[in-house]
Write a protein that binds this DNA or RNA. Sequence first.
DNA 1: CGCGACGTTGATTTGCCTCAACGATTGTGG
DNA 2: CCACAATCGTTGAGGCAAATCAACGTCGCG
Lengths: 190, 190
Amino acid sequence: MRLLKENLRKHITLSEEELDVICDYFEPRYIGKGEFLLSQGNICRYEGFVLEGCFRIYSLDDKGNENVLYFAVQDWWLIDIDSFMNNLPSSLNIQALENSKVLLISKSSKETLYRQLPIVERLFRIMSQKALVAWQRRLIRNHTLTAKERYNHFVQTYTNISSKITDRQIASYLGITHEFLSKIKKNSSQ
Amino acid sequence: MRLLKENLRKHITLSEEELDVICDYFEPRYIGKGEFLLSQGNICRYEGFVLEGCFRIYSLDDKGNENVLYFAVQDWWLIDIDSFMNNLPSSLNIQALENSKVLLISKSSKETLYRQLPIVERLFRIMSQKALVAWQRRLIRNHTLTAKERYNHFVQTYTNISSKITDRQIASYLGITHEFLSKIKKNSSQ
DNA sequence: CGCGACGTTGATTTGCCTCAACGATTGTGG
DNA sequence: CCACAATCGTTGAGGCAAATCAACGTCGCG
């Protein structure tokens, strides 16, 4: 819970009482390596916060190719917002890449929380807006940088993540093939 | 103002009084073709809502290449969130592509509005989350679709926009050169 | 009118993909 | 604990999508 509180305090000033109220709505859950918190076709009923472990959030295209949207390790959030907000079948998969521990809040709990503590609306507004900026930046990087530059940016920015996951996953995140990533690494290491 | 009210009502149920309060904080402004609502290096002090006209939001990389983040026509919003939220110098340019009319709300007005009418926090949370989903989808399209497929998706999805802007701008939005877009169009028209 | 931005086209290059093969590592069931 | 399968990372040959560079005619605008 301490980790969650610290995460929330990064975005907004909250009293200890408010933090306690918020945290009360979350429940811990363990997810084994390879298991899914969400798989496509189902409705995303929980928002998750990662305490330990590592996740990949990915979609599948028509040909069955996996496309990693992002990774989540400690201190990151797990959700398919579209599915969660609108009760739509998800097109995303959220899979644990190692044995993991998360805190979950259900959709109904979150709505109750919003009403009970209106400042939580503000909190999640701010979090969403920060996330939005990050996605915009990533799109610009995809347009302006080469695959090699994007790879270097990734390992520098997410050192803690890149040490946990396979090169295939990283390649998928970067939007390139794993063969080509291998050639990038060979090329840049000499 | 009617247009703004309709836009807000798409996301959340609001009474006529609430809508009036919100709208009172916005002031109209005309922006001539080629003029900037925001240029990089400056702080984004206003959030804008487009009533008429057309805008491009773009950044420049080191080599001076323009990179269009998105276009905004009637019913769209104009802002550099990062700069607006954190009072940072913007890395974005917001330029009118034709004579345009917008509604503006300043940062201080928006903060006042949040306090006066807490439901506005909810409103902008929901708007931000919807926008987030759109950016995620766009990134996936960039990874999975070819340039031609992305172009077709763009003209189908944004018919009203694509008729207003040059092919160079569209190419920049798609992340390709304008020469290549020209070849795509030639190729697909026969 | 003349200039600058535009769209087009072609020749050439390059970044990245596809397919195929290989050894190394990991995981799993007997 | 080992044998086997599966997945991984690597490498190479070849191909394709898209970039680069350059030239040209067109159009809107001062």
